[in-house]
Design a protein around this nucleic acid. Structure first.
Lengths: 330, 330
DNA sequence: CTGAAAGCGCTAACAT
DNA sequence: ATGTTAGCGCTTTCAG
């Protein structure tokens, strides 16, 4: 592999001059610059990343901590994050790490592999972001809003979304609700439940324990929940699911048992997956601005990496209610 | 950030001794080793990756070239690839790069960011793998089998899968077929079409041009195809789609128009997405061993990175026919 | 505007 | 078994 010395030799200049050309240093004579550039692409020269990183103590890369690659919303997030990184000439290192302490990220940061970290993991109580932030590492948390975590956050407003979802259902006369929720140790689902509960409390609506089913964020949980609901008495007027995939499973289970949607029961999801619009589901949901979250998240991170030391920011993006046939009214 | 010199000072040894402990060099006295280890975690020491990479001319990371993050099978691939990489203590750098020349990978390799590359991009005719291989870079291509490309490949046998799919349909008396295929500049779809065609030719079965619809790998293409089929005459006995998502769209479009599946027409997909098993689709398909492809792919790559210079290998993994309700027979 | 010299943190020879 | 020395390829003073 060609080095800057090789380039220098070919161009008949000193090696530091090559470095200056590389970094756009203006104090290089145009004629010399030309010679160097020509030598560079004659050799197909690419500067050695490790050497540059060691010398400058910056890697030019960001890390992404993910524990949820198989979650249906994750690809959109990752796609946007990688594009935004590329647009800023930042490399992307991916850590598939479910440990809330984020040991891979810590090692990556301390080892100088990355200059900043995007946390996308859904588990709550993770000390990872806080630990890194305390070491002065630029960090942004995307799609979760952890309390007492002194780092930048970009997330959809799960609590408000839960509230709005309940309000929508109640406003349309569906006051006997059931809820099928994702895991309690995640962040999105409990926040949505919390918002929902707040609205219910305000309006004096009760939901029995047997109609508030907590499980995983999965089709299977929705399927199982449908069985539970069918056995535990008459159909509620509406079922709110904290995730679209849960709703997909729920609808399948209900239909297997001859329950019609929306005639016999309304079903509502939350996430706004593109799939929710498909005929097979036609699911009313709350669309999360996943792409915008990723874009704003990387923007914030890039600012921090550029030295911005301002106060911690929390960006709460609104979700959009998408009404479809699963709650069709008039 | 602590360096090996700091560790050495604390432990009262020379800096290279720290390096020896780090690399498990056996010629270190146990007592000294203990002192060094203790100093290390006293300081929370993590060796600098750039320095090590520069010195050894190895980064300890692999690159993944992806242009299809949003494809529904990609997350499973990525999830497995990252796990397998971690199991081998390899970092993962992700390039979201649709350019078939794979400029990001080339820069990454030349810059010493990675020691090997996994290509997962679906576009055909990409010069990327060949270019890198010619430079002696370990490369593996996953889920496509490009002709005249002298690098390791791991892929499901798309051609055989197409053949087997046609045989299944014909064996069950469905001899008037329609085909809805993905893009011609991809690799999987044309190979599947080719296998299909081979079987049809062997059995003297004809498929009219108006019943062989090529488009993108998307729900929308399937939806549009259903309209075309409905307009172009009587329903065929079966429709084979080169991808599950296409089949999902097709089924939606058909059902909108009162066509029943499988009573009026059989529908078959190809990919074996977990979703295909959901009630809403209940789709007969060919399951690709995505996880195994990823696992074998990284295994091969790791061997090459470890110096294996044997002949280029092509691993063709079989798919598994999963018969479901969309082609239900007796 | 350009070159000479130093050094980032580590590993690999070499010396003891 | 351990320490000393050198150098990976680059950027950054410092001279000139």
């Amino acid at each position: 592999m060609a080095t800057s010395r090789d380039v220098a030799r070919i161009a008949g200049v000193s090696q530091p001059t090559v470095s200056r050309v590389l970094n756009g240093n203006p104090r290089v004579a145009e004629e010399i610059r030309q010679r160097v550039v020509q030598a560079m692409d004659e050799l197909g020269y690419i500067p050695n990343t490790s050497a540059k990183a060691m010398r400058t103590a910056r890697s030019g890369a960001v890390g992404i901590v993910a524990s949820e690659i198989l979650n249906p919303y994750f690809p959109r997030l990752l796609d946007t994050l990688t594009r935004e990184a590329r647009a800023r000439d930042l490399g992307v290192v991916l850590w598939n790490d479910a440990d809330p302490a984020a040991p891979m990220a810590e090692a990556g940061v301390k080892g100088g592999v990355v200059d900043g970290v995007v946390f996308t993991a859904v588990l709550a109580g993770g000390q990872g972001p806080t630990l890194l932030a305390e070491h002065g590492v630029p960090v942004v948390v995307v799609n979760r809003a952890e309390a007492n975590c002194p780092v930048d956050h970009v997330t959809s407003d799960h609590e408000a979304t839960g509230y709005a979802s309940a309000a929508y259902l109640l406003d349309h006369g569906r006051s006997d609700l059931a809820v099928v929720a994702g895991p309690r140790d995640s962040l999105a689902s409990p926040a949505r439940e919390h918002g929902l509960r707040r609205c219910l409390d305000e309006r004096g609506v009760q939901v029995g324990e047997e109609r508030w089913l907590v499980g995983t964020t999965s089709y299977e949980h929705g399927l199982a929940a449908s069985e539970r609901l069918l056995r535990s008495g008459p159909m509620p007027g509406a079922v709110y699911c904290t995730a679209d995939v849960i709703a997909f499973g729920l609808m399948s289970g209900l239909r297997r048992n001859g329950v019609r949607i929306p005639e016999d029961v309304w079903v509502m999801g939350n996430d706004g997956l593109p799939m929710a619009a498909w005929d097979a589901f036609d699911l009313t949901t709350q669309r999360q601005p996943v792409e915008e979250m990723a874009q704003r998240g990387l923007e914030l991170l890039a600012q921090r990496m550029a030295g911005d030391a301002g106060a911690t920011r929390r960006v709460l993006l609104p979700t959009a209610l998408e009404v479809r046939g699963s709650t069709a009214h008039a």
